[in-house]
């Protein structure tokens, strides 16, 4: 809004924006935690937070794309665990040492293929996305646990072990606490950068917004809606494959029972970041802030003296409040406008 005089800093903050609200909530949450447990304000906490955001952040970027396109995907954790476990198994059976990037490529390829399965049902047959991905989630997990394997692989291939040791930043605080950030964090940064360029500066990215805004209009002006949808689900699959292999390598174990169950928290993060379930809206900044908030909640409840068994309740409440308030405001505005 063009003002006559320069408004003060406070007046210029747009409190209606999701990002602003999220930043305020994150600051408030951090402040409360810091008051209760002063040890919270330290470099190790910060680096833990960043480290814990890697896998969830990559997942969230994928989910953001799906939500913008007007769909929802709950199968990505299944895709991730399938990719990571199958990759590890293949490399272990192979017995030949393979560099970490080759393992990554393999996992991403498997993830992409599984994403294309989603695309087949969603773009190909035009089925409702929630129900399709619920179905593929159980198929993928069922196949993994029945036919691929259901035992832990704790002796990871050399390449993945090496990757886990690649550290970007490391240091020790004055109190002697050790902190570090693995190079895996660069993967998140890379994914964010690539997706940002994709969404802002490519016709494909804008087409994703367009089909989320109005699929019928998109079809009419000649956007290849099915191709765009196919890309979206393949991209989510690829990101899930990447997130999965990073998770395994950082955890130093390939666990076929891992990750599934995390999908609700990831969707919560993205939705808290302002993406709308109806499609067409969502930002990377909001999504990352949403991830930070969820990770923050997960790590700081214990510091706050709340038993970790309450985690689920807090995340559920965040979803209801975080999406309920904007939904209610929108409804009231709509009512006012008649």
């Amino acid at each position: 809004m063009p003002g006559t005089s320069r408004p003060s800093l406070l007046a210029r903050i747009d409190f209606g924006r999701n990002e602003t609200l999220l930043v305020l909530v994150i600051l408030a949450f951090s402040a409360v935690t810091a008051l209760v447990a002063p040890s919270f304000l330290s470099l190790p906490t910060l680096f833990d937070l960043l480290r814990n955001s890697i896998v969830m952040g990559i997942f969230a970027i994928g989910v953001l794309l799906v939500l913008i396109s007007g769909g929802i995907d709950v199968s990505f954790t299944g895709i991730a665990v399938f990719s990571l476990y199958t990759t590890t198994l293949i490399l272990t059976r192979l017995g030949v040492p393979v560099p970490w990037w080759a393992a990554f490529l393999l996992s991403i390829a498997i993830g992409t293929a599984l994403g294309l399965v989603n695309a087949l049902f969603i773009a190909g047959f035009g089925l409702p996305t929630l129900i399709v991905t619920l179905g593929t989630l159980s198929v993928i997990r069922g196949v993994l646990l029945t036919f691929v394997g259901s035992t832990l692989i704790s002796n990871l291939p050399v390449g993945l072990k090496e990757f886990a040791r690649l550290v970007m930043i490391r240091g020790t605080t004055a109190e002697g606490y050790f902190f570090s950030l693995p190079w895996a964090f660069a993967a998140l940064v890379g994914v964010v950068a690539v997706t940002w360029v994709l969404l802002q500066y490519t016709t494909l990215g804008r087409s994703i917004f367009a089909i989320g805004g109005s699929p019928e209009s998109a079809r009419r002006i000649g956007i290849p809606v099915r191709a765009v949808q196919t890309f979206v689900y393949a991209y989510v699959g690829a990101l899930a494959g990447l997130a999965g292999i990073i998770h395994a390598s950082l955890a130093r174990v390939a666990n076929p029972f891992d990750l599934v169950g995390l999908e609700m928290s990831v969707i919560a993060a993205v939705v808290l970041g302002g993406a709308r379930l109806a499609g067409g809206y969502g930002t990377i900044t909001g999504t990352l802030l949403g991830v930070v908030l969820i990770v923050l909640v997960n790590t700081s409840l214990i510091l706050l003296g709340i038993p970790s068994t309450w985690q689920m309740v807090v995340i559920g409440a965040l979803i209801l409040v975080g999406t309920g308030v904007p939904a209610w405001q929108a409804r009231r505005t709509a009512l006012r406008a008649g």
Binding site: R206, G213, S214, E216, S217, I221, G222, Y281
Partner: peptide, 15 residues
């Protein structure tokens, strides 16, 4: 057949 979530400029120039 417009895109409600996109700007006027983008709506006009997309095709």
């Amino acid at each position: 057949s417009l895109f409600p979530n996109l700007t006027v400029a983008e709506n006009i120039a997309f095709s």
